[in-house]
């Protein structure tokens, strides 16, 4: 067998992983829609990182006011016009990407981690633990999420972190229920029995065999939720809880624009379009990711 050992030793972990990545990329490239989604998300992320730097009127982002230039219609100087205090709407929207996308990410990541933990433990342990955890989940689900987020945000006080935390705490039950169901199904798979027969520890069975096979619905839900989370963040901004002015945020921008709506329509258009684009892009990307992450599910 020694002659077999040599080529193996030469094949370090690197090439194998690279080959896997190359296959995944190839699969991803076969769908134009997911490429479009990836492009939109890349654009959104680009603005989230550099929006306030690249904004054509950085002073406006910091809160400067020029009443002489208020409600200018879209033009070459102001592609999306100016608002009620003469700030460039394009600059505000670009800078607002940061808050919206970061908050969306925060909500989805905290919510999915929390929910996955609760659901996985409930489904894997079963019995009394399952009952207790799931009844608590149901309890949280009965409370309307926006109201709960509002209550938590009001209790914790306004601010970016509190807003993210507030939305996350109303966000996890969906993941808990999804993951519990997936774990219950995966627990009965033969390869799980095989792992137990090998002598694998419960933690190894759960994290190596069960959870990886529950991943694709979680990823898909995360990508769909990313859009909804951005919308919820904007919703909280719209009703005045969340980040405080002068920090630009899409929801707050829309909320102010609403009062001038039919006449000065351009004040609402840029933040609205940005939100639409971000939600659309994340949804397309999520579908593409599912095709890559779940080799069996591809057509």
């Amino acid at each position: 067998m020694s002659k077999l050992a040599d080529p193996i030793a030469a094949t370090a972990a690197g090439p194998v992983r690279r080959e896997k990545l190359a296959r995944a990329l190839f699969r991803f490239r076969q769908s134009r829609l997911s490429l479009l989604g990836a492009a939109i998300v890349a654009l959104v992320l680009f603005f989230a990182l550099l929006g306030s730097v690249l904004a054509p009127y950085p002073d406006d982002v910091r809160g400067s006011v020029s009443t002489a230039a208020r409600f200018l219609a879209p033009s070459a100087a102001h592609p999306f016009g100016t608002n009620e205090v003469g700030q460039d709407v394009l600059s505000l929207t670009m800078a607002g990407t940061t808050v919206s996308v970061l908050a969306g990410f925060g909500v989805v990541i905290i919510g999915s981690l929390l929910g996955t933990l609760v659901g996985a433990v409930a489904g894997f342990a079963g019995g009394l633990v399952d009952e207790a955890l799931m009844r608590f989940t149901d309890l949280v689900l009965t409370i309307p999420s926006l109201i709960l987020a509002m209550a938590i945000a009001a209790a914790l006080g306004p601010g970016f972190e509190n807003m993210v935390l507030a939305i996350s705490l109303s966000w996890w039950p969906g993941y808990a229920r999804l993951v519990r169901g997936e774990v219950l199904a995966a627990r009965e798979e033969v390869y799980v029995t095989a792992a137990r027969a090998i002598g694998a520890s419960p933690a190894r069975v759960l994290f190596r065999h069960i959870l990886p096979n529950c991943l694709s619905p979680i990823i898909v839900k995360m990508s769909l939720d990313m859009g909804f989370a951005i919308l919820t963040v904007a919703g909280l901004g719209f009703i005045g809880i969340g980040v405080r002015p002068p920090t630009p945020e899409w929801g707050t921008l829309l909320s102010t624009a609403r009062s001038y709506m039919p006449d000065y329509w351009w004040t609402a258009m840029a933040p609205g379009m940005a939100m639409f684009l971000a939600v659309f892009g994340f949804n397309l990307l999520g579908d593409g990711l599912r095709d890559v992450l779940d080799p069996r599910g591809r057509r």
Binding site: E189, Y191, T193, N213
Partner: peptide, 9 residues
Amino acid sequence: DPYASLNPR
């Protein structure tokens, strides 16, 4: 069942 006994991931 060799189709079910290997972890697909």
